[in-house]
């Protein structure tokens, strides 16, 4: 094994070549990492519900497309109901201020 985060914490770092990781890098179980990843994607999906809906409308018409569009519409509707798109637009306007 060469992954530095799998070495004991008192292993000296490799000499000469810089590295992003070290034996001291904090680790989680794959399950914990999956939970974090899923929640991060959920937050992103909440903020991008309009883009997801646009993408769903652009899908080729095959079996299951209508279901996907229905899910995307329901998701976007739910996000609009709690005001997420408006908040996202406000943040975007602030962050893009001054852009030519």
């Amino acid at each position: 094994m060469r992954q530095p985060w799998l070495q004991p914490a008192d292993t000296p770092p490799p000499r000469g070549v810089p590295d992003d990781f070290s034996p001291r890098s904090a680790t989680r179980t794959a399950g914990g990492a999956a939970l974090a990843l899923a929640l991060a994607l959920l937050v992103m999906a909440a903020g991008r519900s309009a883009e997801i809906l646009d993408a769903a409308y652009g899908l080729p018409v095959v079996t299951g497309t209508e279901t996907l569009i229905a899910v995307a519409e329901a998701w976007d509707g739910a996000m609009q109901a709690i005001g997420v798109p408006a908040a996202v637009d406000a943040v975007r306007a602030i962050l893009s201020a001054g852009r030519a």
Partner: peptide, 27 residues
């Protein structure tokens, strides 16, 4: 930064990462 984040529960870490990801996409 990693040491600070290591104290967080994976659920909180996921929400923090998600918010940062969204912020980057909006900017």
């Amino acid at each position: 930064s990693e040491a600070a984040l290591a104290l967080l529960h994976p659920m909180v870490l996921g929400l923090v990462f998600g918010a940062l990801l969204l912020g980057i996409l909006l900017a």
